[in-house]
């Protein structure tokens, strides 16, 4: 299984960067959770505050949550909607942007693809390398939230939390697939990474800004349309249709990336 050799090698080279991301993410989660108790003690009516946001901002950063006084609702708004979907999603699209383009740009690809490794296997191997990376980040945040909630003596629904992280993981994998396609298409790392982050960030905004407008259908282009951390964590509803879309889009992007790369000149 040469894909696995390629995946293992790629993953090993990304360990350090991954560690940094985990540390930053856990720190962010820790700070966010640490602030939560002081929210409950204040006199501000947060429900009213949220309603006073423009709808676009609500769509982007609040999601479907209406109750910020529970830890779940608070986390969705403060952590999952913005940090997870937008920042971590963009990060993985960006990181995946260098998977293939990095080797083409640096010409190391000339030492790999002259071995009995098809370009498709090469692309698939690179994609597989990112799966444990997503899993590590996903589990790190999950652990940080569980431990953090314990430290402030708050109950959190573990099953729903797992659901958020399971579907969220699929979302991040889809972001990786976006980066992978850009990486297979562009010969330069910076272009591939720019395109990947642009697509994830841009469609996130598109999804948010077109909510309740005539152009809401445009939001369907965004991966964020297919998962709702609020629904998952607060209400505990899994949108299986959305999950299916995320998985299907991921598969399609990987196949497309492989096909694009098979047809390209490498120089």
């Amino acid at each position: 299984m040469r894909e696995l050799d390629i995946a293992a090698f790629e993953f090993a080279r990304r360990r350090r960067g991954l560690l940094v991301v985990c540390v930053l993410l856990v720190a962010t989660a820790g700070l966010t959770i640490a602030v939560f108790p002081s929210f409950g003690d204040s006199d501000i009516d947060f429900a009213e505050l949220l309603e006073s946001y423009p709808e676009e901002l609500q769509a982007a950063f609040v999601g479907s949550v209406t109750d910020i006084s529970s830890l779940e609702g608070y986390l969705v708004i403060e952590l999952y909607q913005l940090v997870w979907l937008l920042i971590v999603g963009s990060y993985f699209a960006y990181a995946a942007g260098s998977l293939v383009a990095g080797e083409v740009d640096r010409q190391s690809v000339e030492l790999v693809l002259v071995r009995p490794v098809s370009r498709t296997r090469f692309v698939v191997g690179k994609f597989l390398a990112m799966l444990p990376a997503v899993a590590v980040v996903d589990l790190a945040l999950l652990a940080a939230v569980v431990v953090g909630a314990g430290l402030i003596d708050e109950e959190i629904h573990l099953g729903r939390l797992l659901a958020v992280h399971a579907v969220g993981g699929l979302y991040l994998v889809a972001c990786v697939a976006v980066g992978l396609l850009a990486s297979a298409f562009f010969g330069r790392v910076r272009r591939a990474q720019g395109a990947a982050i642009g697509v994830v960030f841009g469609t996130f905004l598109l999804d948010s800004l077109t909510v309740d407008t005539d152009y809401e259908f445009l939001g369907a282009l965004s991966l964020t349309r297919y998962l709702d951390p609020g629904e998952l964590l607060v209400a505990g509803d899994v949108d299986w249709g959305g999950v299916a879309v995320l998985v299907a889009v991921t598969c399609a992007l990987v196949v497309l990336a492989a096909e694009v790369f098979e047809r390209r000149d490498l120089s």
Binding site: S108, E110, P116
Partner: peptide, 27 residues
Amino acid sequence: VGHIPGDPRFYDDVSGRKTLDYFAGLS
């Protein structure tokens, strides 16, 4: 087939041994 490219570029952060291990796994 063996190949030496015009300006061979390996993986900067990887040792020579691990680089060869990787290629050994492939061919």
